[in-house]
Design a protein around this nucleic acid. Structure first.
Lengths: 359, 359
DNA sequence: AGCAGGATTTGAATCGATCCAACAAAAATG
DNA sequence: CATTTTTGTTGGATCGATTCAAATCCTGCT
C-alpha cells in the first residue's frame, strides 16, 4: 500500500532500492547491469526489494547519459511522418534500414516536421547516434541543420554539390541513358520529361538557366543522361519539354496537362520517378490514350507498385533496399570518414513501353 | 585548427563554452534554452564562443535526464522492424499514429526484436514516454514486458482477457456477424474459416478446446460472431472447418490446402484478416477456381490493398487510421486511467462475394 | 547619497544511472 | 600461519544539461 502511494508520488530510483536493501548504489546498479558479479544472496535480496517497491528497472534516461550511445538511428525528412509509411520508395528504403538495424539491435527514430522551426527542433533534440536523411524538398536545409548536430549522417537519394557530406546515391547518368536509349531504339522521337526538383519549391517548365543552377545534382544528372543519349540519336534535346514537379499528384498532373497542351504531343515520357510515371499512366488513361500504344513511359526508382500497375511499368530500378541497408550501416559503424557511394541501377523492361506509334 | 583537434578529442560541453565565455553554466544554459532572459551582449558573446569552439548545441541526452520527458512514443511489436513498412495493416495504423504525433511534435521510436531477449532489452531500454503495442504473435509476452516499464501503454488490435491494460479494438463480434450474414444471405451454406491465432505459435484446424482456452479474445470473438450469425440460418457450425494460421503466406496456403482437401469444399470463406483473404483469392485463382463464381470470400480489416485486388475484396473495415490516432493520443495525453475503447466497423461490399453457386 | 525594484547572473542541487579505484573479506597458496 | 589471489562491495566522480533561490548589478527617484 505504502509502495503504491510512493509510486504515485515519484518514481523509485535505483538509489532508493539500494538504500532499502542496505547496499551501495554501485552494487544495486550491478544487480541489474552485471548480475553475475554480485553475490547470489545479495542479488536476490536486492531484486526482491526492487520487486516489492515496484521498481521499474534502471531508467534508460539515466543510463543513456552515462553510456553516451543511444543505440538508435534517426531517419529524417522534411515530409510529414506519414511519408515513411505512405510513399513506396520510402517504404522500401525503410525496409533496408530496418534490416540493418534489426541485425545490430539498433532502434529507429523517425524525425520529421511540417514546419521549419519544428524541423530544426526535432533534429536538434532527437535522441540518436546519427541520421539518415531523406533529401526531398528542402534537402539542403535538412543537411545544414543536421550538420550542426555534429553527429554522423548520410544523405540519401538526391546528390548535392557538397562533397563534404556522406551520401549514397545511384548512377543517375547511366540510368537515365538506359531509359532514353530504350525509347529511342523503339523509334520514339518526340519526348517529354517529368522532372524532379532542381531547387526547392519550384515547379513548371524548366529553362537551361534552372538546370545550370541546380541544387539537386541528381536531377541534373538524370536530365543530362537523358539528353546525352537522345542527342546520339540525332534528337534535338533543346525542343524537349522538361516539367519540374513536386513528385506528387497535383503538380504532376499539371505538368502532363501542360505538356500535352502543345500541338505536337510526345510519344514518349521520361519520368524521373516511378511515382510520376504511375500518375502519368493514370492521367493518360483518363484522357483516352493508350499506354504503350500511344505513349510510352519509363519511370525511375523501381518501386514494387510499378510491377502491379496496368500496364506494368518499365523503369530504371535502384537497389533501394540495399541503399537503405548501407546507409544504416554507415551510421551504425561510423568511422569518422566521409563516404560517397554510387550504386548501379538495373533496367527493368515491363509493359509501359512499346514501339513509337506510326504517325 | 585547435578547435578541430579538440572536437576530435571529446565533444564540447556547455560547461566548456561557459568557462571560455566567462559566464556561469547557468547563464550559458539560458543562452540556448531561454535566450530572451539573458542580456543581448552576453548572449551574443556566448553564442560567438560556442560557434567558434564548434559547440553542437545542448546535448539532448543531458537535457533529457533533467526534463524527464522524451517526447516520443514507442511502437512495439514482436515482428521484425520491417513489419512496420511491409504490412498493409501496420502501415495504415502507423499513418494514424504518425498523424497524432505530428500534430503534437512528438517523435516515433520503432521497437521490435527477432528474439525474445532482444525484445525484452529493447522494451526496457527504449527512450520513450509510452508504448503502443501491436499485439500479434506473442502479444501477451509483449504486454507483460511492457508493463514492467511502468510507462503508459495501449494494446492494439487483439483483445486480451486482461482488463487491466488499456486497449483499443473493434467490435469483433458485430463485424464477424455482418460478414457471416452477408454470405448466408447470398445463399452460401458450406463455409470455412481462415482464423487468426487463438494462442501463440500454433496453426492448424481448431478444436472447441482451443477456442475455449483462447488467449486472444479478439480471435475468439470473431469466430463467435461468425458462428452466432450462421446458426441463425440453421447452419451447423460444428461442421465448419476453422484453420488457424499465422496470418502470412505459408500457413494460410497450407490452411487452404487442408480446407479444400475435403470432399465437400466450401463455397464461402470467412477470413479474419484481409491479408489471408487476399492470399486466398490468389490461391483459388491458381487452382482454377473463380472468385466469386465458385467461392466467395469476405476479409476483415479494410486495408487499402483490398480495394485493388482482382476481384476487389469484400471486407469488414476497421477504422484503422482512427485507431492509430487514438492510440497515440492515449499515450500523448495520458492521465493514468486505464481505458478500453471499442470502435465500430464498417461493412464494405466489393467484388469478392456473390451468390452461392447452384448445385 | 540612499534605496526600492526590476533585470541579470551565479552556483549549488538535481535528474538517474554507470564506472572504477580502493578497500574488505574470503579463499587459495606456500 | 603469513601471503597472495580471488571475489565482492563501496562510495566518489562523471555523463551534460536545467532549475531555482540567492546574490549582484543597474536605473530611476527622492
Amino acid at each position: 500500500m505504502a509502495s503504491l502511494l510512493e509510486g504515485q508520488a515519484r518514481p523509485i530510483r535505483l538509489a532508493d532500492i539500494a538504500k532499502a536493501a542496505g547496499v551501495s548504489h554501485g552494487t544495486a546498479s550491478n544487480v541489474f547491469s552485471r548480475p553475475e558479479i554480485v553475490r547470489a544472496e545479495v542479488r536476490e535480496r536486492v531484486k526482491a526489494v526492487a520487486e516489492q517497491m515496484g521498481y521499474a528497472g534502471p531508467d534508460p534516461k539515466g543510463r543513456l547519459l552515462r553510456a553516451g550511445k543511444v543505440n538508435a538511428i534517426g531517419v529524417a525528412t522534411t515530409e510529414p511522418l506519414s511519408y515513411f509509411f505512405d510513399d513506396p520508395f520510402a517504404r522500401v528504403m525503410m525496409a533496408g534500414i530496418s534490416e540493418a538495424c534489426d541485425a545490430t539491435g539498433a532502434g529507429i527514430a523517425l524525425v520529421s516536421a511540417a514546419n521549419q522551426e519544428k524541423l530544426a527542433w526535432n533534429i536538434q533534440s532527437a535522441l540518436v547516434d546519427g541520421f539518415v536523411l531523406f533529401c526531398i524538398e528542402g534537402g539542403s536545409r535538412l543537411v545544414d541543420l543536421t550538420r550542426e548536430r555534429r553527429l554522423p549522417f548520410v544523405a540519401l537519394e538526391l546528390g548535392f554539390q557538397d562533397e563534404t557530406v556522406s551520401a549514397i546515391g545511384v548512377d543517375n547518368v547511366a540510368g537515365a541513358r538506359l531509359a532514353a536509349r530504350h525509347l529511342a531504339e523503339l523509334g520514339h522521337r518526340r519526348f517529354a520529361v517529368l522532372s524532379l526538383g532542381f531547387a526547392d519549391n519550384r515547379t513548371g517548365f524548366v529553362t537551361p538557366e534552372v538546370v545550370r543552377s541546380a541544387v539537386y545534382t541528381g536531377t541534373r544528372d538524370r536530365l543530362a543522361g537523358y539528353f546525352e543519349e537522345l542527342s546520339r540519336f540525332g534528337i534535338d534535346t533543346a525542343k524537349i519539354p522538361v516539367y519540374e514537379t513536386e513528385n506528387e499528384e497535383k503538380s504532376t498532373r499539371a505538368g502532363l496537362q501542360a505538356i500535352f497542351a502543345s500541338g505536337e504531343p510526345p510519344t514518349a515520357i521520361l519520368a524521373m520517378s516511378d511515382r510520376m510515371a504511375l500518375i502519368a499512366i493514370d492521367w493518360l488513361r483518363g484522357r483516352g490514350l493508350n499506354v504503350p500504344g500511344d505513349v510510352s513511359i519509363v519511370g525511375f526508382d523501381g518501386v514494387p507498385d510499378g510491377a502491379l500497375s496496368t500496364p506494368p511499368l518499365t523503369t530504371i530500378a535502384q537497389p533501394i533496399t540495399e541503399i537503405g541497408r548501407r546507409a544504416a550501416r554507415m551510421i551504425l559503424d561510423h568511422d569518422g570518414a566521409v563516404r560517397r557511394e554510387t550504386m548501379g541501377v538495373e533496367f527493368v523492361v515491363r509493359g509501359s513501353t512499346g514501339p513509337a506509334p506510326k504517325a
